[in-house]
Design a protein around this nucleic acid. Structure first.
Length: 576
DNA sequence: GCCGTTTTCGGCCCGACTGTTTTCAGTCG
């Protein structure tokens, strides 16, 4: 994944240039290129070999050369050189909210401050007021900014962001005069982690909403609050931005605040070429300044001759081109989901009885779920001996007689042992309807060994699905070393599905990997890895990943009917 | 530094809020 390393370097380069006061468009070009690299789904090495680097949007001759330099030597000299001329603490100063390049430059040059700690000390000693344009208020704000930086640098995962945003949205809905609300930003795009929450409301009297927000119980500290926009920090330390626009601008504002920034830039460029201007209030004629539309989000895209683009696609990762060619995918949606795989019960490390799990799935209207408790060697999770597994199968058969709509599939989450063998013999696997293969041990093995284990498991005819293929746990554990491209090829060859694990700390595969897998023809499955019945709801996070991966229902195993699913599983088993 | 159905040069998205100002620069999203 060299593209992420290079993207980081380009982002750094942009920061360095910004500090030096370089041309803003040059800075923007680096950021845009970095963004493109981050969302790249094909192999950078392959593109470089084929001489096709400049086909990546935002990469021209110069940046293509810098990428080639990095691929061959492991560094980029121009960036190293610039980096050595600026103390690293100065770049960190620019990450303080409220401190931008100009401020950092003034502090560094005139007061010789070159780290966040030095800045904090200087602000406390009121030494900043020596500078022109710096007064007491600004010192206070810098100290507040440093406190924010130190408290919460980490982004929250979707499982935290979504409920919080829903609570604030409910609050907004109750304010008199508010006719429509939505959340926007990266949450609406279902990015795997969220920096701050963006919410939007339509009202003809924004002052009421602003006043209500300033007094809201979740407003721990007010960052800024004007006529139409309020930014605040919640007691959890999360920044919330709320914007209020007139009802006739709601669609334009929703489009604008959903982003991504890069997507919006592209959209506005299109608009400019058509003699239009787009802002958060609507679509305007450049010539006359007349308001043309903006009530619905569709209106904005329509104005530039494009179909509406799903928020999950708005990353400037090919969606504009697809929209122009009328080739946007018909994305998988919650209405397509017929079941869930990889469900735990209290037979291993789940909280709930089989009966409770089954009834919940039945109530959700699922056509099937696969009960997949842990296999024998995973003792820490009360993995089932063969004997207990067979008892469980018996109980599942009994339950199936009583369930209305949902069929319980007899399954197991079977450890892929360090040797690459499965934790149950084939004779036992053959009795199961659905077999999930998982790595739970030997995370520190080499890439060759880990990749080999997973591929060996896929060659077992009874293995239906590989769970959480990279093993990452956001904020706790990095992915283990695995060659995903090799895994994807083997998945296609063997007819094995790969999981999009919907647990919000996992989301594994991630969006870009799942997109690559989909493009290579891999069958994906969104499963919740449910350990307590409430977690069935996590399917929405997995759906977010699948949609960000451009997946259509036909590429997602749990969009199949029970019969189609059984046929698909049987196909692999009878292949030889 | 990138890019082209007006352009290979001269553009490059657009507005809110704050602080320190009497008209705007800096920062942010």
């Amino acid at each position: 994944m060299k593209q992420h390393d290079i993207a980081q370097l380009f982002f750094q380069m942009a920061d360095l240039l910004e500090f030096r006061g370089d041309n803003v468009f040059r800075i923007r070009a680096y950021r845009r290129a970095a963004q493109s690299l981050e969302s790249l789904s094909s192999s950078l090495e392959d593109l470089a070999t084929a001489g096709k680097l400049s086909e990546i949007s935002g990469i021209g001759v110069d940046l293509a050369n810098k990428i080639k330099e990095y691929l061959s030597s492991g560094h980029i000299q121009a960036i190293e050189k610039l980096k050595s001329s600026i103390a690293p603490g100065i770049l960190e100063m620019m990450t303080i909210p409220g401190v931008g390049p100009r401020t950092a430059k003034a502090l560094a040059e005139q007061l010789k401050i070159s780290s966040v700690d030095q800045l904090e000390a200087a602000a406390k000693a009121h030494r900043l007021s020596q500078l022109p344009g710096f007064q007491e208020k600004k010192e206070e704000n810098i100290l507040k900014g440093i406190a924010i930086l130190k408290k919460g640098q980490s982004r929250m995962h979707l499982g935290v962001a979504l409920p919080l945003a829903q609570g604030i949205e409910a609050f907004l809905k109750k304010i008199p005069g508010v006719s429509r609300t939505s959340f926007a930003g990266s949450l609406r795009r279902m990015k795997e982690t969220i920096g701050d929450l963006d919410l939007l409301a339509a009202s003809a009297s924004p002052e009421k909403a602003m006043a209500a927000l300033r007094k809201a119980s979740f407003c721990e500290r007010l960052l800024a609050s004007g006529d139409t926009k309020t930014s605040l920090i919640t007691p959890e330390g999360i920044q919330v931005d709320v914007r209020v626009v007139p009802p006739k601008s709601f669609g334009a504002a929703l489009q604008y605040f959903t982003g991504s920034k890069e997507h919006n830039v592209r959209l506005r460029e299109c608009a400019a070429r058509k003699g239009l201007k787009i802002n958060e209030y609507g679509v305007f004629s450049l010539k006359t300044g007349k308001w043309l539309s903006g009530r619905e989000e569709e209106d904005i895209y329509k104005a530039v001759g494009l179909p509406w683009i799903a928020p999950e696609l708005r990353e400037d990762a090919g969606e504009m081109e697809a929209a122009k060619a009328n080739a946007l995918p018909q994305l998988v949606d919650s209405k397509h989901i017929r079941g869930d795989f990889h469900i735990h019960s209290n037979w291993s490390d789940g909280n709930d009885s089989l009966e409770h799990v089954a009834q919940t799935a039945d109530r959700l209207g699922y056509a099937y779920i696969a009960i997949c408790d842990h296999s024998q060697s995973l003792k820490i999770a009360h993995g089932m001996t063969i004997e207990r597994l067979q008892k469980q199968m018996k109980e599942i058969r009994q339950l199936n007689k009583r369930l209305k709509t949902c069929r319980l599939l007899m399954g197991a989450e079977v450890d892929i042992l360090k040797s690459g063998k499965m934790d149950y013999p084939d004779s036992v696997l053959a009795e199961l309807d659905f077999v999930v293969g998982s790595i739970h041990t030997g995370f520190t093995q080499s890439e060759a060994l880990l990749t080999g284990r997973v591929i060996a498991a896929m060659h077992n005819p009874f293995v239906t699905l590989i769970a959480h293929p990279t093993g990452r746990l956001m904020g706790q554990r990095e992915s283990y070393a695995i060659n995903l491209e090799a895994v994807f090829r083997a998945a296609v060859d063997t007819g094995t599905a790969l999981e999009i694990n919907a647990y919000p700390q996992r989301l594994d595969l991630c969006d870009t990997a799942a997109r690559k897998a989909g493009e290579m023809g891999v069958m994906l499955a969104i499963s919740t890895d449910t350990h307590a019945v409430e977690q069935f709801n996590n399917i929405r996070f997995g759906l977010g990943v699948a949609r960000r991966a451009w997946l259509k229902p036909g590429q997602v195993l749990n969009c199949f009917s029970l019969k189609e699913l059984q046929t698909w599983i049987a196909k692999k088993r009878t292949k030889k």
